[in-house]
């Protein structure tokens, strides 16, 4: 014979267990986060290129220093690249530097690099792909419901570079001028090519000769 107290304790336990397994509690903020509003790609790209990238200049690595480090111990450099700046074999770097223009060609501007064996170019014609988006490590695929939106961001950043950053630069750049730049660099981990480097410009400032 169970005592009255024990009987009620068992009933309370039974009701508690039933209640615990009948109700599922989810944070509203987590639920809402699964619903993405229509993305304003143009505004997103503008904010990234003209505000967030210049603010990230402190995180950019000097291009000469990067070339030297990759030439010396590529594995150490590549292993330190976070997931936000890699896509499989492709590694992305935000680089900065200042160099003299030695040639203004149709598809690029050739810069005076420290090593004779390195051709350092700023691309002025072929601005494609994801380097401009991935270099700063600020935008991740996890922020988007689908990769099409993610890729649309790259296209819009590239379009802004072609339409707003390059026209004044191409108009003014002359051999002998010095250019100060922030740029995106893509390196293939398994086949790094450091003899002919083409940078995607994110910010360019000319200091006339």
């Amino acid at each position: 014979m169970l005592s009255g107290g024990l009987k009620y304790a068992l009933i309370v336990l039974a009701v508690g267990l039933l209640g615990y397994n009948s109700v599922y509690v989810e944070r509203l903020s987590e639920y809402k986060s699964g619903v993405q509003k229509t993305l304003d790609v143009k505004a997103y790209a503008q904010e990234y290129l003209f505000k967030k990238v210049p603010q990230s200049v402190g995180k950019a690595v000097n291009i000469t220093e990067l070339i030297s480090r990759v030439s010396g111990n590529p594995k150490a450099v590549f292993n330190a690249v976070p997931e936000s700046r890699r896509a499989g074999d492709q590694l992305y770097f935000l680089v900065k530097g200042e160099a003299e223009i030695v040639e203004v060609a149709e598809e690029y501007v050739l810069l005076n690099s420290s090593g004779d064996s390195v051709k350092l170019k700023i691309a002025t014609e072929y601005i494609f792909g994801n380097a401009s988006r991935n270099a700063a490590g600020l935008i991740s695929a996890d922020q988007f419901d689908n990769t099409m939106d993610f890729n649309n961001v790259s296209e819009e950043i590239n379009r802004l570079i072609r339409s707003q950053i390059l026209p004044p630069f191409k108009k003014e750049a002359r051999k002998g001028d010095t250019v100060n730049f922030i740029a995106a660099l893509e390196i293939r981990e398994t086949a790094p090519k450091l003899t002919d480097i083409e940078l995607i410009p994110l910010k360019l400032v000319i200091k006339p000769h």
């Binding site: 699964g34 072929y126 994801n130 922020q143 419901d145 890729n151």
Partner: peptide, 26 residues
Amino acid sequence: REINSRTAATSQILSDSYSACVELGK
């Protein structure tokens, strides 16, 4: 292949089709 959600699946392992087709385009 992808699903249009970033909360439903535990993880999505996807080929970077866009970047590859940029290279194919060139």
